[in-house]
Amino acid sequence: MSNDKISVSTATRMEDASYSRKILAAKIFRITICVILCIISLFPFYLMIINATRYTKDIETGISFIPSGFFIQNWNTLMEKSAGLGTSLWGAILNSAIITFPGTILTLYFSTMTAYGFFAYNFKGRKFLWAFIMAVMMVPGQVTIVGFLRFMQTLGLYDNFLALIIPAIAAPTVVFFMRQYMTGAFSLEIVEAARIDGANEFRIFNTIALPLMKPAIATQAIFAFIASWNNLFTPNMLLASPDKATLPMFVQQMRTEQFTIDYGAIYIGLFITILPLIIVYLFLSKYIVAGVALGGVKD
């Protein structure tokens, strides 16, 4: 027995040295892979920024990692060419903002409200209605688009931003997330207490429940905003007027033949379109990364 013990401990000691070498080797290997992945994630954006500063003819001759001096000229070309698109770059950003901001606010307010309705009240059909929300959660908007398009034409909401804003009130995934969050972080006793103080139900929701939900709202706000800001399919189907193009629709036009010959302008256009998102991301990445794990938002 004692022999065994000794041999085990020497073995452990010997292993220790090789073990820590192994750990080090593993560490170096893993870090290398991770660094490569980071480079792959950022490289296209880097290339885009570099090319935004290069002369179109130079871009065509090959790859470069050093910026050149054509940023301003490319910018001018972009402005000149995008002038023919019906919506200017700034117009497109404005249109996107007009749709995205109210849409996001509606999504958050009404989703929290709906979740609260399911959470705080016991009413007939509650289980069934909740099951309904769960069931429709995964139904993508794309499959209803033909009916939606024609229905909007009937309603006279075709080519109208409202057709893109109002539906934001009903966002099943956000409702689902909000209720999950409430279950974990919200106590009905506070509501009871407020009722004793004589507050009416909507006041309780607005002044007590909403503030308590801030962390969840913040996370969902980011995702709802990004999803709406980046949406191409629905606006593309629903908007007709040339001056109503959203930012992704503006981007889409850079794929048309007016731009194909001017890479410098394309790169700078892409750069401008993604810049707001990169800035938002830089400031909120902590919450975004944390929020992904929380909600599993994916559509």
Binding site: S41, L42, P44, F45, I226, W229, N230, L232, L247, P248, V251, Q252, T273, I274, L277, I278, V280, Y281, S285, I288
Partner: peptide, 8 residues
Amino acid sequence: LPNVITAA
């Protein structure tokens, strides 16, 4: 990062 950027 690539996930938040406009797919278009």
